[in-house]
Design a protein around this nucleic acid. Structure first.
Lengths: 375, 375
DNA sequence: TTGTAAGCGTTATCAC
DNA sequence: GTGATAACGCTTACAA
């Protein structure tokens, strides 16, 4: 917490530097250091001629303002921290890809720290971010990994992207049967508990989109393959059920899945054994959906002929899989960009806590079709 | 180059901070600031009792050393910069995932900057890195994007990962026919031109591995689907040819591909039209290989029954594709970790420029098999 | 073993 | 419009 942890490389061992400073520029251009700053920063009250002379000198010397010195006096590091569970997950990589350009646009650098899927390590890397005096933090919270450690940065502008807190097994089991409004209330409670601004994917709307697509195709018996025991699963189920119920239908089944291809495949084998009574499956995400499709193929069940399958996210795989996956696309880049924007707003004005949910859009490919005649 | 570019958010608009400083800790523990530093840094000559008191005070106050201030006086930022073409590419994400933990291990943070696939933008983000006074830089150089801008950071320890400079069309065309030693010499020339330490994938060895696998299966007529016009393509071809030639064989064909699934598919359609005279294809990477397989399927050509296909890299898709792709895995994480290690060595001692090539390993899956009887 | 003081490179506050 | 000068928070000779 307080001191630096023991570290492999001692401070004094690293090579020092001796770069061009503002004084060198001042000397060469024959003005004071103060004037150099003003000239370079575009301060209004400098003679155009002086400014030109200073800029020229700066360029000639290859002067580059020292970030650390500036940060020290201004109290602003012009750096934002990004805490991700792991950058290897293409989903978060995509979100990060949305953040970085938006930050760069305002001259902010992005310091990335990885939580390694472990709350303790996440806490440590958060410390690194804070030690670097980042001006703000964006936390990507997959499966609630980083969430419990979110309290310390308080006081520092913080935005959460894709908050997805774990839910109890009861809530997950009950998701199929509990009244939809109850589910939504539970979600609201979860969000309020965090007390931080948040940019997320509108899971409820996404569930609705998936369900509506299937109903429009003529499906009436639909199963849901749940993801991990987190809020997102509950909400997508709620969205699906909302549409189903308004069509006088109900979810035929909800099965525990997971979030990997393998788990999807295993669940698919379970789900698709002879005698199942649905014509379509909505899977929590694309990887799971792909697993189900693979299981179907192995079992000789035709997709979409006998069973339609819908996923969520629209990962790169979705379009390359065979059959290509119909899915509800999550606006990952946009979520990242919006989070950065929101963070800047927080840094500038004392903005109230805000929740923004970005909608998904249906991408129809080959894994869905009208149900078979007799179904 | 010199001054800051005009930026969206003015410095003084951002909220200031007033965190706990070393003075607060000094006051609370009744010692001087100097002693606080020493106590917290593990300096040998502090009374254990004093140290304890200081540490206690620091913890109680939630003191966190200011990175900027420390960087200013020590000249060391304890931050390394990572320049990637784009973090969205799972390949580089994986490499980054290897760098970050290795850096964290020595208490270094990683500042990520994206080149956006554009040399100019890459140059700008490099400036950001340098302005942040990073202690070292790792440049991931895909298809030579960042390479031309590599000169400026000179003087700062720099390591390149996955350098892959463009080659002239002549070199690419000639790769099939030119003597292998000539190809290897050309590669050597390219590398020497850079003058920076480098961690890479051993393309030659990888090509050999792929070719050997096919030959062991009994294939004798093999085609190569080239990637972009870069050194990696030439070297993989060289590796393949080396093995082929020592078996008294030669490459049946080399076709221009690209590096996307779509390009692979298009090339596959070209390549696989009736009358082709090979029983196996080595594609420059997995995405290309997947495209070829898809083309084969569309054309009714059985993989691996009629044609075997090998890729490189072992991206996530490779295992999920159907048939699952046989490939030569690139040790992406390891490359990242090794690059970080090498960078630290450069930062500590005045290490000579070094090239390290990490070997790949064969991952046999379903896209390769012995050639059909009559082939 | 600890304290004092100087200084890292920059910006901000005054004067002029 | 420009120049001294004093911070910013920390480390480090040098003294004590």
């Amino acid at each position: 917490m307080a001191a630096d942890p023991p570290q492999g490389i001692g401070l004094r061992t690293v090579r020092r530097r001796r770069p061009v400073t503002i004084k060198d520029v001042a000397q060469l251009s024959g003005v004071s250091a103060a004037t150099v700053t003003r000239a370079l920063q575009g301060h209004p009250r400098v003679l155009p001629e002086t400014r030109a002379r200073v800029q020229d000198a700066a360029t000639r010397l290859g002067y580059r303002p020292d970030h650390a010195a500036r940060a020290l006096v201004t109290g602003i590091s012009r750096t934002i921290g990004l805490l991700v569970p792991t950058i290897r997950d293409p989903y978060w990589a995509e979100v990060a890809a949305g953040i970085e350009p938006r930050a760069a646009q305002d001259g902010f650098a992005v310091l990335i720290a990885s939580g390694y899927g472990d709350p303790v390590r996440a806490g440590e890397t958060l410390e690194v971010l804070l030690g670097n005096r980042v001006d703000g933090i964006i936390v990507t919270a997959s499966a609630g990994v980083a969430e419990p450690r979110l309290t310390p940065p308080m006081g520092l502008p913080t935005v959460v992207v894709g908050l997805d807190p774990p839910v109890g097994p009861l809530e997950l089991e009950g998701a199929r049967l509990a009244p939809v409004p109850t589910l939504l209330e539970a979600a609201q409670r979860h969000r309020e508990g965090v007390g931080l601004s948040h940019v997320g994917f509108d899971d409820v709307a996404a569930g609705e989109i998936a369900a509506r697509h299937l109903i429009e195709l003529g499906h009436r018996r639909i199963a849901f393959l749940a993801g991990p025991a987190t809020l997102a699963t509950v909400l997508r189920i709620a969205g699906v059920r909302r549409v189903l119920e308004s069509a006088g239908l109900e979810l035929t089944a909800v099965t525990r899945g997971g979030d990997t291809f393998e788990e999807g495949r295993a669940a698919g084998v379970e789900l698709l054994r002879p005698g199942h009574d649905f014509s379509a499956i909505i899977a929590f995400n694309d990887l799971l959906a792909a697993g189900v499709v693979r299981a179907a193929r192995t079992l000789g069940v035709d997709v979409p002929g006998e069973v339609s399958v819908v996923g969520f996210d629209d990962i790169a795989l979705a379009g390359l899989f065979q059959p290509a996956l119909t899915t509800v696309r999550a606006p990952k880049r946009e979520m990242g960009a919006r989070a950065a924007e929101l963070l800047f707003e927080h840094m500038l004005h004392d903005l109230d806590v805000q929740w923004e949910l970005l909608g998904g859009n249906l991408v129809v490919r080959e894994s869905t079709a009208p149900p078979a005649a007799g179904a």
